[in-house]
């Protein structure tokens, strides 16, 4: 490299390295180090796996962990199933102006904070809420119904909150599918279902993977929606982390929990990428 380009290179790589090293890499290493130390006295620590032991010995922790993972996977699948037909409509059925308007309409709910979205569902679902009132008014039920504070409510909120992150990648990949390919498949005798399975879904695969990864991640790490819609017994893993860090001030155990969450999300993201033959650069970049 010439000196000039060399100086340019150093100037450009410095912010990147500062950001990644100081805010991502070292903090995570430090979190891991904290998670493998045990308090044996005042300001006295020794390294041990005791915190992970606590995690694996306490059924409540394991149960919450497994439950969070399964519900996140389920929420991702539901989001995908709901979003796919709508995205397909926006990308392939709607044309011109309608298309851009519909796409924008999809984005609107996500320009506002997650807390507002969750609040909307609370107003709808609570005992004195709209859905309950409508049900009473139509005579389907005779008294107020509480629809908050259960798993369905959590699921509704999670799916709603994640929708955008599924719709955007799906619309983008589906838009790039040439209409003529679908027509050709049709002319060759493909039925709707076989075209979907053999042409459309393979083409949309990068979008499906990208959307699913982001939605899964956001759901797994969500704190607000499970707490607000699920109430005290929502048993979401992030709540345990919050509890240890902020309420109990047991950072060692909290860090171990955080590390378990990170491990879980990394394993799942990695295996989804491997199974579908995608790479992080291709799906995210």
């Amino acid at each position: 490299m010439k000196t000039e380009t060399k100086i340019g290179f150093i100037l450009l790589i410095t912010p990147l390295l500062l950001w990644l090293v100081l805010l991502i890499i070292i903090p995570h290493i430090d979190m891991f180090l904290v998670s493998i130390r045990e308090r044996v006295g005042v300001r006295q620590y020794q390294s041990s796996l005791a915190n992970y032991g606590t995690f694996f010995e306490e059924p409540l922790y394991i149960w919450t962990f497994v439950r969070t993972a399964t519900m996140s996977i389920l929420a991702t699948l539901i989001t995908l199933v709901i979003a796919f037909p709508a995205s397909y409509y926006i990308a392939k059925m709607a044309k011109g102006r309608t298309q851009s308007v519909l796409f924008l309409l999809c984005l609107v709910p996500f320009w506002v904070s997650e807390i507002v979205r969750t609040f909307g569902w609370m107003i709808l679902l609570r005992e004195t809420g709209l859905v309950s009132s409508v049900l009473q008014w139509t005579g389907i039920v005779s008294g107020p119904v509480e629809m908050l504070y259960n798993d369905t409510a959590i699921m509704i909120g999670l799916v709603y909150t994640s929708m955008l992150f599924m719709v955007v990648p799906l619309v983008t990949t589906l838009e790039s599918l040439d209409d003529q390919i679908i027509e050709a498949a049709y002319d060759l005798g493909g039925s709707g279902l076989s075209i979907l399975r053999e042409v459309i879904i393979p083409h949309a695969a990068p979008g499906i993977v990208a959307g699913s990864i982001v939605v899964f991640m956001l759901t797994l790490g969500n704190y607000l929606t499970p707490t607000m819609l699920g109430g005290k017994d929502s048993l979401w893993f992030t709540e345990l982390i919050y509890l240890q860090f902020i309420v109990r001030f047991n950072w060692e155990l909290g860090a171990a929990f955080g590390f378990m969450l990170l491990l879980l999300s990394s394993i799942i993201v990695w295996s989804v990428l491997r199974l579908t033959g995608q790479t992080l650069e291709k799906t995210m970049g």
């Binding site: 990147l16 990170l262 999300s265 993201v269």
Partner: peptide, 21 residues
Amino acid sequence: VLMLLPLVVPGIVLGISILVF
């Protein structure tokens, strides 16, 4: 790839790791 990673780390983990460090 390292630059992309923050997108696949749960937000709460980013938060506590920076807090700890």
